[in-house]
Design a protein around this nucleic acid. Structure first.
Lengths: 123, 123
DNA sequence: TATCTTGTTCAATGGATATTGAACTAATGC
DNA sequence: GCATTAGTTCAATATCCATTGAACAAGATA
């Protein structure tokens, strides 16, 4: 982890709620919830949501709140949900949020774009 | 209900998260979670948290997001959690938030003040 | 080395949000 | 009717937050 992430026990509910209380960031979480089992996503894959600069900003917010993990991968940044950490701190919380976030319109749109640009058979 | 409250199916997760993503409002929820079984609280009982004017503002935010119910009672406003409505819309969400919010420092302080000013034996 | 891709940094802006105090309204109790 | 209690409204401010564009940095690739 080259980027600063809060330790599990430093994740606070006010920070997490504030981080999720934004349409763009909630959509990011919705996308991740759909793709997390297949290794998460890289920042560029959220480009349907807003500008590159703005994505950097929102991804940093989520990372600093302890909601996501961001790992450099070449020039890319692989983003994953901190499921275990959040479950440990706030049992049931993430699941209940995801249940709704996963169906947000912005998430639908973004995922459809991803499917259409992903080569079949790619890892 | 003389004050405008959203219908159950008009309560949205982004609005609820934004409403809860504030220290004062999260403390209000924590207090309510402790007192909800005993009929909720009136606005004035949150006076330890911030000014009267500011309380009006934050209580309105929570009401407009569909998190609380506010019912006039003489010159007072009785505030209760919309537990059933939130459980229906976002199963598990409120419980997971309350589990943490109930122990916030501001909630501890406010509740201690309330206990010391409540006459024993009052309804 | 040159170039492309991906994302960051910075400064500036606009807009939303929280906070305040003064004046006000509505219900209650004397 | 008058004072009291409880909360609201309004205008002003202060602050934070999201968004943008230009310039930059780092890794990949040729």
């Amino acid at each position: 982890m080259s980027l600063p992430h809060p330790e599990t026990d430093q994740i606070t509910l006010p920070n997490v709620l504030a981080a999720l209380g934004d349409d763009t960031r909630l959509a990011i979480i919705g996308c991740l919830a759909r793709c997390d089992a297949s290794g998460g996503l890289v920042c560029g894959q959220f480009s349907g949501l807003t500008s590159k600069t703005n994505l950097t900003y929102h991804v940093a917010k989520l990372r600093e709140a302890g909601v996501i993990n961001v790992r450099p991968e070449g020039t890319k940044r692989r983003v994953t949900l901190r499921r275990d950490d959040l479950d440990q701190r706030f049992p049931g919380f993430l699941d209940s949020v995801i249940a709704t976030a996963i169906d947000l319109p912005a998430v639908e749109t973004t995922m459809r774009e991803l499917e259409s640009t992903t080569e079949p058979g790619s890892a």
